[in-house]
Amino acid sequence: MSQQEKERNVQAVPPKHVISDDTIEYVGILAKLDLSEQEREQAKEDMGRMLDYIDKLNALNTKDVEPMTHIFPLENVFREDRITNGDGRQAALKNAPVQKNGSFQVPKTVDDDRAARVKVSGQ
C-alpha cells in the first residue's frame, strides 16, 4: 500500500451520497460497462464522493437562469446535398475488428425465430 493510499484510508469518511447497488447496476447498463465486484465498490464510493462535491452547486441560486449549452449562438449549418468525399469503404473497413464480405461483422442481433417471423410478416 502506497503512502497515498494509507493517507486516503485514514482520511476516509464515507460519502454522504450513498450509491446503491441498483443505481450502479443501472449506470453500468447506460454506460455499457461490465464492472468487477471490486470496480463496482470503488465506483460506488467514487461517484458518491464526486456527487458530494458537485452538491456545492446547490448553494448557487440559478432560478430564472437559462441553461447555457454553447457560448455562441449555434445555427444549423446547411450545404448542398452533394457527395464530396470519395468511396471510403476500404479505408473504413481497414480498422474493423471483424469483417465479412465487405461489411462489419457483429454478433447475431436477431434470433432465428424472430428473424423467421419478420420474414413471414414481410411477405
Binding site: L30, M47, P67
Partner: peptide, 25 residues
C-alpha cells in the same frame, strides 16, 4: 459513469441542467 448518471432521467435537471445554468452565471 458519472456522465451517464448526471444525464439519466431523474438526475438530469438536478445535475446537468444545474451545471449549464452555473456555466451561464
Amino acid at each position: 459513469m458519472l456522465g451517464a448518471f448526471v444525464l439519466s432521467s431523474g438526475y438530469y435537471d438536478a445535475y446537468y441542467l444545474k451545471a449549464l445554468r452555473t456555466k451561464a452565471l
